[in-house]
Design a protein around this nucleic acid. Structure first.
Length: 600
RNA sequence: GCAUCCGUAGUGAAGUGGAUAUCACGCAGCCCUCCGAAGGCUGUAACAUGGGUUCGAAUCCCGUCGGAUGCACCA
């Protein structure tokens, strides 16, 4: 189903063509002066130069051409050459009726048949999720859902950090603390124990301890490097222990991501790319792309046009070990082989921008990806505290993600104290609302920008926040519930009546109120907003749409008494409208991976 | 030192060449005998700075001043 803008643009294009101008000037946009008109076209301004005519003269011709079209209720040429357009209530109502009976309110996926991989985990084994993982997780999940909705076959990959130095550090420290474990014995050939020798809790203490120690102890650091080297070369005991640690870590990470409503199709890690590294390096050597520099094997990725320094992409470090350049490169090899995606999106901290640019360039240079695969780095900014610096706990440590979620849920629960609700239900709802506050607060900012996390503002429930959106939705449900019980029917039945056209808009001849028209117009922007957000991987555009729609609904709600409206035809028109508003909000909140309660 | 990104009301954010720069918080007020006041309405205040390109610049280019980040063997 065409969007309203497309419909208007079509009409404009044929008008421009009919008047002897290029059709490219006939593009409609939502008005940025809602007090003057609903839609506008600035094509006459742009065309003026080419045709040596005053813009207002061109706009006048177009306006005259469109004047008889019943689709519009107003067509005006305004100085210096704007075309101001309003669409008629009839056309608007018809359009909304079309939306109501179409699947997904008439949204048409634009990318069916293509595959996209979204890499947005990046959590490390043996380390709990912390606030730094929040943004990639929720932005990535939303981007994935957006692309999926827009037709892509999508694959989310957790891409765990399971293969590098941290593991070496953990092994080294474990060797100090538990020297008797069979895993260290190179001569051991028997079965290894079923259970992991350390608990997750211990691991979470061991890693930071070892990491700190390695920074001042050269010998310790060397030991860790050696351990990584041996693990990567398949030392039996190390492999067995590594697997055990992986198991308990993954289970914990999965639980944490599940709690955030973030789900991955693949739980691959850096280790899964390992088998591809050696053949890849051989291939690059053969092609003459890899060369030795300062003892390391690298791919030079400088380009003529660079005016910045561009360090080479490092395949092998000078000690022969594999670094994360080659891991990420080999991961691309693997993904090409398994999925041949048309798009790979990396939702990773923006500070890794240079690294990924190196990897992308190397991948292109080596022919690992062709022109039909887009590599896209969606670098996310950091979540900062009120001081503008990366968010910390009160004592300056890194805050665990589950504690952050707990804090925000508790805050919500406090505010729900005056709600008449069972304790258990209140708990559950406060969690949903808290998560919505957190996610919406994050997603409503541009992904690439840093933002300030302010728990009081996010949970304030006023203005452009997650809870405000949820509140609006709950309100609509509540109205539908009232209507349903008054007529002895159910919400589902009412929604079906709308979908199957038993209720329709535009049946009554009446003047629509201003807030009603505003709400209708806002709703027509549904498909447009989602396409834009998907194309640009920009969930904040969904938030902007959702807020606008919720805001318009609340104004409409304030002006009109729906339940007590006596004219049944008018009431049914309104029911149509709010059912579709609810549907649009539900779809959008799902695209943001935010769950919505039935009441709050 | 070099490079990249960023600078919009007191605060936090939209706005990638078009009209009077949008929204939220805050602040000052107003609106519940009426479908959920976690709501609605009114007011307040901003494009860092200096040039340039353009009929037209918050937006594109250059300089200056601020801020964040990154500059091969940790990922």
């Amino acid at each position: 189903m065409n969007t309203v803008l497309e419909l208007i643009s079509e009409k404009l294009k044929s008008a421009f063509t009919a008047c002897g101008y290029e059709e490219k000037y006939g593009t409609a946009a939502v008005s940025n002066r809602p007090d003057l008109c609903q839609y506008q076209c600035n094509g006459a301004l742009a065309a003026a130069k080419q045709y040596h005519k005053a813009p207002i003269a061109i706009a006048g011709e177009i306006a005259e051409k469109l004047a008889g079209d019943g689709f519009f209720s107003k067509v005006e040429a305004v100085n210096p050459g704007f075309l101001n357009l309003n669409i008629s209530n009839k056309a608007l109502a018809e359009y909304l009726n079309q939306m109501a009976k179409s699947e997904n309110l008439g949204f048409e996926p634009a990318n069916t048949g293509k595959t996209a991989i979204v890499d947005y985990g990046g959590a490390n084994v043996a380390k709990p999720l912390h606030v730094g993982h929040l943004r990639p997780a929720i932005i990535g999940e939303s981007v994935k859902r957006l692309l999926d909705f827009d037709g892509y076959k999508t694959i989310g990959d957790a891409h765990l950090g399971d293969w590098g130095t941290p593991i070496g550090l953990i092994f080294t420290e474990m060797q100090v603390r538990f020297p008797d474990l069979v895993y260290w014995d190179e001569n051991y050939t028997g079965e290894y124990p079923k259970d992991c020798p350390v608990s997750l809790k211990e691991l979470e203490e061991i890693y930071p301890f070892a990491s700190a120690k390695s920074k001042e102890d050269e010998e310790y650091r060397a030991k860790a490097r050696q351990a990584v080297f041996e693990l990567q070369n398949g030392r039996r005991g190390y492999m067995a222990l590594w697997k055990k640690i992986m198991e308990i870590s993954k289970a914990d990470l999965k639980r944490n991501y599940d709690n955030l409503n973030v789900h991955f199709e693949l739980w691959y890690g850096e280790s899964d790319a390992d088998p591809y590294i050696v053949p890849m390096i051989e291939d690059l050597k053969k092609k003459g792309i890899a060369k030795i520099s300062e003892g390391a094997l690298v791919v030079d990725v400088k380009e003529e046009s660079d005016n910045k320094e561009m360090p080479p992409c490092m395949l092998l470090k000078s000690d022969g070990a594999v670094g994360y350049d080659s891991t990420d490169l080999a991961t691309i090899v693997q993904r090409q082989k398994d999925f041949s995606p048309s798009k790979i999106i990396y939702v990773v901290d923006k500070r890794q921008g240079l690294h990924f640019e190196q990897v992308f360039r190397a991948a292109r240079k080596a022919g690992i990806v062709g022109d039909d695969t887009e590599l896209f780095f969606l670098g996310n900014g950091t979540m900062n505290g009120k001081d503008g610096k990366p968010f910390k706990t009160r004592d300056g440590g890194v805050m665990r993600l589950e504690f952050l979620v707990r804090d925000i849920s508790d805050k919500v629960l406090e505010k729900m104290a005056d709600r008449d609700m069972e304790e258990e239900e209140a708990q559950e709802i406060s969690r949903m609302v808290g998560l919505a506050a957190l996610k919406y607060g994050d997603l409503s900012n541009q992904a690439t920008k840093d933002y300030i996390f302010d728990i009081d503002r996010f949970t304030s429930f006023e203005g452009n926040t997650g809870p405000y959106i949820l509140y609006t939705m709950v309100r609509i449900k509540s109205i539908l519930e009232k209507l349903a019980s008054a007529e002895g029917t159910s919400i589902d039945k009412i929604r079906n009546d709308v979908t199957f056209g038993n209720f329709k808009m535009g049946r009554t001849a009446r003047e629509y109120g201003a807030s009603e028209v505003d709400l209708m117009l806002s709703l027509t922007g549904f498909s447009e907003s989602i396409h834009k957000a998907a194309d640009e991987c920009a969930p904040h555009k969904i938030c902007a749409f959702v807020y606008d729609l919720a805001d318009k609904f609340n104004s409409f709600y304030h002006d009109n008494k729906i339940v007590t409206q006596e004219d049944v035809n008018v009431r049914n028109e309104w029911v149509c409208l709010i059912v579709d508003v609810l549907t649009a909000l539900e779809i959008c909140m799902d695209l943001l991976a935010i769950k919505v309660p039935d009441r709050m």
